[in-house]
Write a protein that binds this DNA or RNA. Structure first.
Lengths: 128, 128
DNA sequence: CAATCTTATTCGATTTGCTGAATGTAATTT
DNA sequence: AAATTACATTCAGCAAATCGAATAAGATTG
């Protein structure tokens, strides 16, 4: 049969098939992020997020990098965002530009703040 | 929560998640095709194909049209082909241009031949 | 209207995915 | 080295998808 190549493709679709994983990928639009960042922004438990990160990792969609305590995830192939945007257009859903929820360096969790305190320390003057 | 829109999106990915359904959609690149056409070209049993067509139909990806005995399926939104091509590129899989298996009016099944005999009747002179 | 053709649907067994709970692992601090 | 922090993995119960077999439904022909 000639369908082995489609199995590779369905592994990709299978990885994209979950709302939580789409939320994770949306967060990774801002560049690499640590797990606690996703935990704080999405409100899921850490183990739950790690499970979905494992699926994304085994699908080859994300890679991880360790930096001290934190492990930062990033998307391997940024074209996946175009793919998701295109699919959202087809689904009649607003594209990510209108629905971004995670802002680049506004992670409220103290863990991510500690990891970024050397680059962004002046943001504590205003809550907005 | 704001994830209802992603459920719509995951319904799309879920429909695309299956190798057989991707094969069916590849056949529908040539325009609308009857079920027996897919049966002949893919080699699956009719009920099996109908089951997958039901998934594609409920996902809003295809629509059907009755013409006598045959029911012809077509893709509602042709942009889904761009989506699949883009995903195949990302998966390192050759795009459809290099892997087309179903040719427009060369369906070998006698049923489809009967449905098209009024438009293409001169092809019976050569077996190639 | 009965027979036939094409396609759809239901049923059931098996497999696969989901997700919470518990536990494991690796780096860091003291 | 022990405690801590951040994250990963395993396990288990449950829900959903898969797929073959049988059957039903709708249109057409005689």
């Amino acid at each position: 049969m000639q369908m082995q190549s489609d199995e590779q493709l369905t592994r990709l679709f299978k990885a994209l098939m979950h709302p939580t994983r789409l939320e994770i990928l949306d967060i990774l639009r801002q560049g690499e992020q640590c797990v606690c960042h996703m935990e704080a922004h999405l409100g899921y438990r850490q183990a739950y997020i790690s499970q979905h990160l494992m699926v994304l990792r085994e699908a080859g969609l994300v890679e991880d990098r360790r930096d001290g305590w934190n492990i930062f995830y990033r998307v391997v192939e940024p074209r996946v965002f175009d793919l998701i945007d295109q699919a959202r257009l087809m689904s009649g859903v607003a594209t990510n530009a209108t629905r971004r929820r995670a802002r680049p360096s506004a992670c409220p969790c103290p863990k991510c703040a500690a990891a970024k305190v050397d680059t962004a320390m002046k943001e504590s003057s205003a809550t907005a």
